[in-house]
Amino acid sequence: MRPSLQQLETFYWIARLGGFHAAARHLHLTQPTISARIQELEDILGLKLFERGGHRAVITPVGRDVLVQAEKMLRLSDDMEQISKRRNPMRGLLRLGANESTAMSGLIELLGRLKAQYPDLRIELTIDVGANLSRKLNARELDIAILSDPVSAPHVVDVAIGHVDLAWVASTQTVLNEQALHPAGMAALPVVAMPSPTTICNVVMEWFRAAGHEPENLSICNSMVMMIKLVVAGHAIAVLPRAVVDAEIKSGIIRTLKVKPPLNPLMYYVSYLRQEPGLADGTLVTMAREVLQQSGLLLPLTLPLSP
């Protein structure tokens, strides 16, 4: 008996996402179904692919070898499936996704350049968080997306285009102890963040947890525009891309906080479907990089990370 594509796809996503629960959610399957597929695959191969324990599934050394071959088989299967579906999105409909930071920065300029260079192009625009954009790309519901922290299937190409400078920000009317701008001193402060599993939420939680603390007064908001309003009104502090609140900083209603440890810049990507001939030449990737750097959102890739 040979492994099925369903078994290999399940194996790939468990290895990619680090757990059976995560893969079940991603594939919209029950965990017993996921477990059964992996058991069948291990029986067929006569190999143990994962060490199971806790909330994560750790891939074994031989499992890593199998993963390399599984990725090749999934990619080949996808290539064959797409032969009859190939089209050039730059001559028809381009399904473009972007996160909110991009939408608030250079997206309008990018759309203008696209229409000028490709006058016959129609654009279907999706603004969403990176996790959802990745999911839609993997499901081929988008052609291309601008996002951070993509979690991509083998048929999606991720191209790093720059860093985004993040900062803790507060209203200039908010009185803070400047000597206590560290995880222990800020744990009790009101903090607003986007919902999990967004990148900004992950950044906030990891910043506190790396120092052994949890934010004690955390509010969730799914709109970056509303988050900025909450910060301006003094209701909370937040981690936001510095460029997104540049106008508020310059007008003196928001200030950046000099926290310790500092926040590392966030990597930004353009991710697109591998089979799309209109995207593979990199023109749109280059255009997005140039526009977002000119908008001030992106910093060059050569920027060193903070220690």
Rank of each mutant, 00 (worst) to 15 (best):
residue 26 H to D: 11
residue 78 D to W: 01
residue 91 R to Y: 02
residue 291 V to P: 08
residue 79 D to I: 02
residue 186 M to A: 09
residue 21 H to E: 13
residue 276 E to P: 15
residue 145 A to G: 08
residue 162 G to A: 05
residue 297 L to P: 15
residue 185 G to K: 04
residue 105 S to M: 10
residue 101 S to N: 09
residue 300 P to D: 12
residue 103 A to K: 06
residue 203 V to K: 15
residue 191 V to A: 08
residue 112 G to T: 01
residue 65 D to P: 07
residue 264 N to G: 12
residue 180 A to N: 14
residue 238 A to C: 10
residue 197 P to Q: 03
residue 158 D to M: 07
residue 289 R to M: 01
residue 37 R to L: 14
residue 40 E to D: 12
residue 106 G to V: 05
residue 294 Q to K: 10
residue 29 L to E: 05
residue 156 V to Q: 02
residue 137 L to R: 05
residue 185 G to N: 08
residue 71 E to G: 03
residue 264 N to I: 03
residue 243 A to N: 08
residue 179 Q to E: 14
residue 225 V to S: 07
residue 1 M to K: 00
residue 188 A to K: 14
residue 93 L to P: 06
residue 246 D to W: 09
residue 205 M to F: 14
residue 110 L to Y: 01
residue 133 L to Y: 05
residue 244 V to I: 08
residue 141 E to I: 00
residue 226 M to F: 15
residue 262 P to Q: 14
residue 177 N to W: 12
residue 104 M to N: 12
residue 213 H to M: 10
residue 25 R to T: 05
residue 235 H to L: 04
residue 53 G to C: 01
residue 116 A to M: 06
residue 198 T to L: 02
residue 57 A to K: 11
residue 79 D to K: 02
residue 265 P to A: 07
residue 27 L to R: 04
residue 70 A to P: 00
residue 128 D to A: 12
residue 273 L to R: 04
residue 258 K to D: 11
residue 60 T to V: 12
residue 74 L to K: 15
residue 127 I to M: 07
residue 255 R to P: 09
residue 25 R to D: 04
residue 195 P to R: 00
residue 25 R to N: 07
residue 172 T to M: 11
residue 263 L to R: 13
